[in-house]
Design a protein around this nucleic acid. Structure first.
Lengths: 339, 339
DNA sequence: TTGTACGCGTTATCAT
DNA sequence: ATGATAACGCGTACAA
């Protein structure tokens, strides 16, 4: 509750002197008054009012973290990948001396409103945005924004950070092929707009092509990627709805559901069906069989995102606006050699 | 970037007229000027500066969500329960017209600083606090604070929300007893300071007592509650380090680890050992065997927390400062009848 | 119905 | 080394 004015009055000095002590402009104040004021600050538990500071400065020390609003009662933070990423981001933002404001948003317009409302210094998107949405957001916003897991081909000035989805799809498929599989399904929420999935799909296609395995469009399984959706697909797989010996599921939860659904209908993984996932959630090693999957380094992703954002905020020259982190195959138990 | 002043100038009216339109005090403005100003607001994309508003009003429209800082690289948001709860809270805060500021904190002192810094209207703690910490926090803070999953015996004015931990421990143990088990271990991170665990433990003890089963203090397994810790305990269980036929683990992740650890050493759940968990994470039904566990309603918890906080902020009479939500047993596959 | 004066807590600028 | 003043954008209280 104490303000600069209160401290100044008590100390018998002007507000500015107190302000200078607070902001450690020690060259401007005598060491006597410094100690005096420091004592009073302690005594009255003075802390600066950041709204006032934000009003008189250009900076608010606020970083906004955005996530898409969920539909159909699907809390996005139930996704272990999202929440881990968020936890890391929060810690990094705090450690950098900033305050994190978290917000789920429906439309691109919402974003710029929040940004202006609070005079936010920078923002991070933790869920994939379409190129259209990104462009609208950037057009209306003044502060730097980092987009995690989004692709933007048309505007090279957009700051993005993601993983090598293409490679992920490629190495997963290659691994299945190396284990003798030829009939391989690709399961994901596939659409032209979903760049991540498209990239993984391209990797899958090219791996097939390289091994001269003819592509069968029946093997593209388009589905939502929740566990329950996986169960549905798994049952169909067990019932030979698809003619495959292996599935590359572009999300771990989906993969786990598939394994369970197949089992429910008497088809055992990996004996009767091989499955690979994507993300390497902790969960993958809790289940039976442990899931072979494409793994990414979430901590590094968060690190890069915050670093990139801070650089942009400080007008530092950013070497690359688009960072792609590596992925690798985490071999466990859900794939079996055949033939 | 546009301010009230800009709009006022362009419209040829005073700032206050614009302000009144913005704040929908339509009784004070002619309908002509209203429409005129509304057009200009749209044209210039005017949005109010909330820092300025916060400065001139008592309210900032900010709600802080606090969580303890993690140690040893343990990101708290990797805990599915915490992140689900947080996701629900964020949505509710937004829907109530507030902005959520998220912060991990180390010490109780940190809290009041943040609260003052931003003139926060209300706060929610999503991880358990000791009574000592709560009292320090409350002493230094002016705004209402809701503590989720904390117990405060000494100060009845503290607002808390939790589940019936005692009942949880009781019904879990009762269920095991009903299934013929007499030698039952209690596994958790037990300490006098951890009120949640203590309550569950009391429930466990009383259930035993009611059935006249002598308590064996060897059966209190004190451990951290991560999956890895569970594996360790599970192995010991399999090696007959404890003389039990069932385990009540006060956290799902721990329970799942125990199941896996036991299996690694050749002890199968539920055939050779029965296990019950606590929390009912989604994960419980992804594993084999599916985990029997004590379930709580996370959504309801978040609902109550926000509702209680808003009431306290609005000086509404709060019927009860301490809400305890019900729990129930979710019977699945990890417990087997014996004898 | 509309306008004026003032204060919220802070910092920058310029003076002393 | 220290202080006075203006400014940041907004809302309250009162006046016209």
């Amino acid at each position: 509750m104490a303000t600069l004015k209160d401290i100044a009055k008590e100390a018998g000095v002007s507000i500015m002197t107190v302000s200078n002590v607070i902001n450690e402009k020690h060259s401007k104040v005598s060491s006597q008054t410094i100690t005096l004021i420091q004592e009073l600050v302690k005594k009255y538990n003075y802390v600066p009012n950041l709204s006032a500071r934000s009003l008189s400065q250009k900076s608010s020390k606020l970083i906004a973290v955005f996530i898409n609003t969920y539909e159909e009662g699907q809390n996005h933070f139930k996704d272990p990948y999202i929440s881990e990423l968020f936890g890391e981001l929060e810690a990094l933002i705090r450690q950098s001396g900033y305050y994190a404001i978290i917000r789920s948003v429906e439309t691109a317009e919402n974003v710029s409103t929040i940004l202006q409302n609070w005079n936010v210094d920078g923002a991070i998107f933790i869920s994939q945005q379409t190129e259209e949405a990104m462009n609208i957001i950037l057009k209306h916003s003044k502060c730097p924004i980092v987009f995690i897991d989004s692709y933007n081909k048309t505007n090279s000035k957009v700051i993005t950070i993601g993983v090598d989805d293409y490679k992920g799809g490629y190495i997963a498929t290659k691994y299945l092929i190396a284990n003798g599989h030829q009939k391989i399904a690709f399961a994901a929420c596939y659409s032209e707009n979903n760049a991540i999935v498209s990239q993984r799909y391209q990797g899958y296609r090219n791996a097939l092509k390289e091994s001269e395995i003819p592509y069968n469009e029946q093997n593209l399984i388009n589905t939502f990627t929740r566990y329950e959706d996986g169960i549905h697909i798994g049952r169909e797989l067990a019932n030979h709805r698809y003619d495959v010996t292996a599935v590359f599921a572009a999300a771990d939860l989906l993969a786990l559901g598939i394994i369970e659904g197949a089992k429910l209908n008497g088809c055992l993984v990996p004996n009767d069906l091989s499955v690979i996932g994507f993300d390497n959630l902790d969960l993958c090693s809790f289940v039976t069989p442990k899931l072979t999957t494409v793994s990414q380094d979430v901590k590094k992703k968060a690190d890069s995102a915050v670093k990139l954002l801070l650089d942009a905020m400080n007008q530092v020259e950013i070497p690359s606006q688009n960072i792609t982190l590596d992925v690798q195959l985490e071999v466990r138990q859900s794939v079996q050699k055949i033939m």
